[in-house]
Design a binder for these strands. Structure first.
Length: 736
DNA sequence: GAGCACTGC
């Protein structure tokens, strides 16, 4: 563990204090190992900055907030939760005595919903701002405004990376930039002569070369995903086994990615660091609602695995995703192999579709990866691409999340803050999202009644913003409140919040089984939302039995998370609930009509209509994408093999074929109001009449008749055909 | 009939 005296930042204390004293905003470039996360707050604390109010330090990750707070409490010799505390979702470990408060950026955002001036704080430090998380980006915009309003009693510090320090400084009116060197050992960068045709093969060859020729030290290989990792691990194992015995040291090959259970990640990598283990365990405990019931169970697992020592004189070759870039630190790494790629989720605002693409990393990421080789002694980084690619093709910084996600939630949040001097469409972002993306968000919010036709937030929208959910789910909850099905809607919302962690862990062996979970409910064939609800209800009936989850192939961690989310949502809903928030066990036997009606209102922006003669669907509201129900869905076709005419979907994912994931059947008569609303949509007006006028309007109106038209497609007499089809549609509507 | 980078309220 570093002692305070050896941290580089300590020598800069005077300079830092002096700069902060004179400026409302300061950018601090703190390289890895500079000690900025633990020391900045203490310096300011010592100089009296926490006398009148608190010092807040945000972190993009929960574990980081907890770890750093614990460390600082230790250094100051105080009890965690007293002078030094932290706040993360589900857990607030602060007291009235707390002067230094670590929190996740999301928690600070929630706090500013209650108190937009954030008067509780005299100093706000946005740490790791270079990671450009969606929340940090929004906070940066808010800080710019706050610094202007609270000139006399607020200091803002932004920590960032070398490559975009100036950019952040420009954003904050050319505020000063302080650079604090890190405590990394030098890392030699070695480039490939050319781009490999297969970076899997190239990684394999490089790793074996290192293993055979270089002195001891672990190897860390950055790959893009689980699939490649598993392939490379098995190839490496074969190769290592085939090496002549005694020709070099032993090697163990370890995969490392997010879908491995956390205790496995810890056991393999933290040979000497009880510190990290303790925090992993803590993280788990805190996920388990502090009910100590499960604590011993998991601690025992940790003990068994964690303290088993690694084989002596054995090189570890770790094959990882970018989880090892920031979230997990692996001790003992001396060699890094960087493929130069990463898997990134992107949102397309014109289709409403997400895709998961393999993209080139940025220079910041490449340097972060290289830095992983120099933590314990001088290291080497093998980049599997030429230096020219790094210089000419890599972006300086990663495309910020705000430019890669749907902004409906963020826009609603900003609208709900009701800052008189802030216009959302002109909101001052470090990197503004495209106007297309903002208009998409406005359109979505309008369709679910969160904003009115002029773009002003409605009373429904105001209540929705208080819920830590995506807008479609918070709208569903509001509607469920009127239909008397809050208990069910709460469960569905919570289940979908944990979506990815919930579904059965798909290991290689499970893949082969055709029906892995025969005992799980099927949603009565009505759709996945209903199934999720039924699954939770079954689990509830077992009194949250962990064994039950395991027997049914459900991730324990995910299910416990769902229980916590549901509890949190139900606390927030308590204030406005018109009926009970829970059903008596076993009471809920119904056809889920009201719940599906509520879903139809909440997902008005995520509706699809089945095509006439097959089971493909067309999305309404976007450009009418043709999409399929995801094969994993439990939605049932009728006796004629037809899916329902209308469904709502939770997510569109292009993989690369476009699928709707998590669908629920709805009835046409519930859909009609939505379609009518789509017709009145005026994006220009929604933008407050300030946005650019675009033809957007035309294509936002679902081209309802088209599906009927296709039957006779041929000559172009579209006008009359559309008219005829519209009549057919109306007739059909009348019949039902 | 198919495929899952990583976070977070």
């Amino acid at each position: 563990m570093d002692s305070m005296a050896t941290l580089p930042i300590v020598q800069y204390e005077e300079k830092i204090i002096e700069t902060v004293e004179r400026n409302p905003v300061v950018v601090v470039i703190g390289e890895t190992g500079s000690g900025k996360s633990t020391q900045l707050s203490q310096m300011l604390y010592r100089r009296g900055y926490a006398d009148s109010a608190r010092i807040a330090i945000t972190q993009p990750r929960r574990v980081a907030a907890v770890t750093v707070a614990r460390r600082v409490a230790q250094e100051l010799g105080v009890q965690l939760g007293e002078e030094v505390g932290y706040a993360i979702r589900f857990e607030d470990r602060t007291s009235h005595r707390t002067r230094i408060k670590y929190l996740t950026d999301g928690v600070l955002l929630r706090e500013s919903l209650v108190n937009p001036e954030l008067n509780e704080y005299s100093v706000i430090i946005l740490d790791e701002a270079h990671e450009r998380s969606l929340n940090t980006d929004i906070l940066m915009g808010l800080m710019k405004r706050l610094a202007k309003i609270r000139t006399s009693n607020l200091k803002v510090l932004i920590t960032s990376a070398t490559l975009d320090g100036d950019k952040v400084s420009n954003f904050f009116r050319d505020c000063p930039v302080l650079t604090i060197p890190g405590k990394l050992y030098p890392v030699e960068i070695l480039y490939s002569k050319e781009r490999p045709s297969s970076y899997l093969e190239s990684s394999l060859k490089t790793a074996i070369d290192i293993h055979v020729r270089e002195p001891e030290g672990d190897v860390l290989i950055f790959m893009t995903g689980q699939d490649d990792i598993e392939k490379l691990v098995s190839k490496l194992e074969d190769k290592v086994r085939s090496l002549e015995e005694g020709s070099c040291m032993d090697a163990i090959i370890l995969p490392l990615h997010g879908s491995l259970p956390p205790e496995l990640q810890a056991s393999k990598l933290c040979s000497d660091s009880i510190f990290l283990i303790e925090n992993c365990a803590y993280h788990w405990l805190e996920l388990f609602s502090a009910s100590c019931k499960y604590y011993n169970f998991y601690m025992n697992q940790y003990k068994v695995r964690v303290f088993s020592p690694p084989p002596p004189s054995c090189r570890r070759i770790i094959v990882a995703t970018n989880i090892a870039e920031t979230s997990l630190t692996v001790d003992g790494v001396v060699y890094v192999i960087d493929s130069g790629y990463v898997k990134q989720r992107q949102y397309n605002p014109s289709t409403g579709m997400y895709s998961l693409d393999i993209v080139q990393i940025s220079k910041v990421q490449a340097n972060q990866r290289a830095g992983r080789a120099g933590r314990t002694r001088p290291g080497k980084c093998y980049r599997l691409y030429p230096s020219q690619v790094y210089n000419d093709e890599f972006l300086d910084v990663t495309v910020p999340e705000i430019q890669r996600s749907s902004l409906a939630g963020s826009v609603l949040y900003l609208k709900s803050l009701d800052l008189p001097d802030i216009d959302i469409l002109k909101f001052d972002f470090l990197d503004p999202p495209s106007s297309e993306s903002l208009q998409d968000a406005l359109k979505q919010l309008y369709l679910i009644d969160a904003i009115d036709e002029n773009g002003a937030i409605t009373s429904i929208g105001q209540k929705m913003a208080e819920l830590p959910l995506e807008p479609s789910l918070s709208r569903t909850l509001m509607e469920a409140n009127d239909y008397g099905c809050i208990p069910e809607a709460l469960t569905v919302a919570a289940m979908l919040s944990a979506e990815t962690t919930l579904l059965p862990g798909r290991s290689k062996t499970e893949k082969k089984r055709k029906h892995p979970e025969p005992n799980l409910p099927d949603g009565f064939g009505l759709g996945d939302h209903i199934q999720l609800l039924q699954i939770f209800e079954c689990w509830d009936q077992t009194d949250y039995d962990i064994g039950w989850c395991k027997d049914n192939g459900l991730q324990v961690r995910g299910m416990l998370f769902v229980r916590d989310v549901r509890k949190q949502l139900s606390q927030i809903m308590q204030k406005i609930a018109k009926g009970p928030l829970d059903r008596r066990r076993g009471e809920s036997r119904q056809d889920y009509r009201n719940l599906r009606k509520a879903l139809c209102v909440g997902y008005a922006n995520q509706l699809a209509e089945r095509k006439m003669h097959h089971n493909g669907y067309r999305t309404l509201g976007f450009q009418g994408q043709v999409v399929q129900v995801h094969p994993s869905s439990v939605l049932k076709a009728d006796d004629l093999g037809k899916f329902p005419d209308y469904v709502v979907y939770h997510e569109l994912i292009a993989t690369p074929r476009p699928y709707m994931r998590n669908v629920c059947s709805v009835e046409m008569r519930w859909v009609v109001p939505v379609i009518n609303k789509l017709k009145t949509l005026d994006v220009y007006k929604l933008s407050g009449g300030t946005g650019p006028v675009e033809e957007e309007n035309e294509r936002n109106i679902p081209d309802l008749p088209k599906k009927n038209v296709e039957v006779t497609a041929g000559v172009d007499d579209s006008e009359s055909r559309i008219q005829a089809a519209r009549e057919r549609f109306l007739a059909r509507k009348g019949k039902k």
